[in-house]
Computed example of a mutant assay.
Amino acid sequence: MAARRVQRVAAPLRSQVLELLREDMLASEFEPGERLVEARLCARYEVSRTVIREVLRQLESEGLVTTVPNRGPVVTELTPFDVKALFEVRCALEGLAGALFAERATAEQREDLGKVLQRMSGTYGEADLAERLAMKDEFYSILIAGAVNPVIDSTLRGIHARVQMLRGLSMQAEGRAPETIRELAAIHDAAAVRGDAGAAREACEVHVRNAAATTLRELSARQLEHQEPTVG
């Protein structure tokens, strides 16, 4: 792997490396189940072992890295059961967040949600994965802030960190981009335009259920691709 030079200004080194390693995991530079060897990471990001260890501890707390006995830290490998469990909780919490946004969001937050959706509608189909993720994150950041519930906020942050590793599967699936825009438009209409808590909850749940189905389908396909060919 080529070295990823860290800018030694602005954000602290730890924060920069943390962001770079997350990006590389998302881009499949590190595959699920792959060992994260400190020496290789030090060389790749050109930082000390101390920084790498701090970053790995942070990613482990987020569920993105798992420490395996006799192997050390590895990229967390989510099973279909893990994925279903994550999306079940995400569905419930985002549904609640949508309902609370409909009831509690300020006029400015409602307007901001519409602006993000408008930008997504114009660029989402042609955007690369990183750009799509950034727009989705912005949409959800506004939605969750408008729910005004710190427990939902902190809990969803942990869930989204783990789901982030799977979003590449669902967001790049054929035909998923226009479906995503339609689903987010339904959330915006119910929560921000009409202020209908029940409809907002349902729209959020539909979006998560569809994302879960796509993710599980793509995960299954990827696992089949990586299976060893059987000897006849």
Rank of each mutant, 00 (worst) to 15 (best):
V47M: 00
A27V: 11
R35H: 09
L18Y: 08
L36Y: 06
L26P: 01
C42R: 15
E46W: 03
R22C: 04
L21P: 00
E19Y: 06
L13P: 00
F30V: 11
E29Y: 12
M25C: 07
E19P: 02
V51A: 02
Y45D: 01
L26A: 13
D24Y: 00
V51M: 03
R14P: 00
V51D: 01
S28H: 13
V47Q: 04
V9N: 01
A11G: 00
L36H: 04
P12W: 12
R44M: 07
E29T: 13
P12C: 03
V37I: 14
L13Q: 01
L20N: 04
G33H: 02
R49A: 14
E38M: 12
A11D: 05
V17T: 06
R14L: 09
F30L: 09
A39Y: 05
T50Q: 06
Y45V: 14
V47A: 06
Y45G: 01
R40T: 12
R40F: 08
Q16T: 14
R14H: 07
L20S: 05
Q16V: 15
L26K: 13
F30Y: 09
L26T: 15
V51R: 04
A43I: 12
R14A: 05
A27Y: 09
P32S: 05
E46G: 05
G33F: 11
R35M: 04
D24H: 08
E46Y: 06
S48W: 14
A39L: 11
L20C: 05
D24I: 07
E29G: 07
V47I: 11
V37A: 15
R44L: 06
R35Y: 12
E34P: 00
L26D: 08
E23G: 00
A43N: 08
T50M: 01
E31Q: 12
R44I: 13
V37H: 08
R49M: 02
P12A: 07
D24P: 02
A11W: 14
E34W: 07
T50N: 02
D24N: 03
L36G: 02
E38K: 14
R22T: 12
L13W: 10
V47C: 03
A27M: 14
D24A: 11
Y45E: 01
L41I: 14
A43K: 14
Y45I: 12
E31T: 15
E46K: 09
Q16E: 09
S28V: 15
R22Y: 02
A11H: 13
A39D: 08
A11T: 14
P12I: 14
M25L: 10
V51W: 07
G33Q: 04
E38Q: 13
T50H: 03
E38V: 15
R35A: 14
R49P: 00
F30W: 10
F30M: 04
R22I: 14
G33R: 04
A27S: 06
L41R: 10
P32H: 09
D24W: 03
P32I: 15
L26V: 15
T50I: 10
D24L: 03
G33L: 09
V51T: 13
L20H: 07
V51F: 02
A43E: 11
L18S: 07
L36M: 09
A10T: 15
E34K: 07
G33N: 04
R44E: 06
